[in-house]
Simulated scan of single mutants.
Amino acid sequence: MTMTPAELEARKDTLELLNAEATSRLTRQRAREESVGALARWLGRPSPAVTLGYYAHFVP
């Protein structure tokens, strides 16, 4: 099945939204139990500062 450029872009946007939602939920859950450094390593982020830059508004 061949997808049009618009369909490919829509799929990419959907995957990015799903990734952001899953990560934000995980961040809220794990931030209660672990340090930001441990969470950053688990997410594969280069540093805790990068993790906080993206997800600080989800940390309780």
Rank of each mutant, 00 (worst) to 15 (best):
Q29H: 15
A38E: 15
A40M: 05
Q29F: 14
N19I: 04
S35I: 11
E33D: 15
L18R: 07
G44H: 11
V36W: 08
L18G: 03
V36R: 05
A20L: 02
L18D: 06
G37F: 02
R28W: 06
P46E: 04
L17S: 07
E16M: 08
A22N: 13
R28I: 07
N19W: 12
G37E: 15
R30V: 08
E21V: 01
R32S: 04
R45E: 10
R45A: 13
A38C: 03
G37M: 06
G44K: 10
N19A: 12
R28F: 07
S35K: 06
A38G: 05
L17V: 01
A31P: 06
R32W: 02
Q29P: 01
A20C: 02
T23A: 06
A22H: 14
E21D: 13
L26R: 12
T27W: 01
V36A: 11
S35P: 09
S47P: 00
E21P: 02
L26C: 09
R28M: 12
N19P: 06
R28E: 10
R41G: 07
G44P: 10
G37D: 15
T27G: 09
T23E: 08
T27N: 02
A22T: 14
L43H: 11
L43C: 09
E21K: 13
R25D: 04
A31N: 11
V36K: 06
P46N: 00
A40S: 04
R25C: 02
G37C: 11
T27D: 04
P46A: 05
R30N: 13
W42V: 03
L18I: 04
W42I: 07
A20P: 03
A20I: 01
N19L: 13
R30E: 14
S35Q: 10
R41I: 00
Q29M: 13
G44I: 05
Q29S: 14
P46R: 00
A22F: 11
N19H: 14
R32F: 00
T27F: 03
S35F: 08
S47K: 00
R30H: 15
E33Y: 11
G37I: 08
R45Q: 04
P46H: 00
R41Q: 14
S47Q: 01
R25W: 08
R30P: 02
V36F: 06
T27H: 04
A31G: 10
R32H: 03
S24K: 12
R30F: 12
E16N: 03
R32V: 07
L17Y: 05
G37W: 05
E21R: 13
L18T: 06
A22W: 11
A20N: 10
E34D: 06
L26A: 13
E34N: 08
T23W: 09
A31R: 05
G37K: 15
A31C: 08
A40Q: 00
A22L: 15
R28P: 07
N19K: 14
L17A: 09
A38P: 01
V36H: 10
E33Q: 15
R25Q: 11
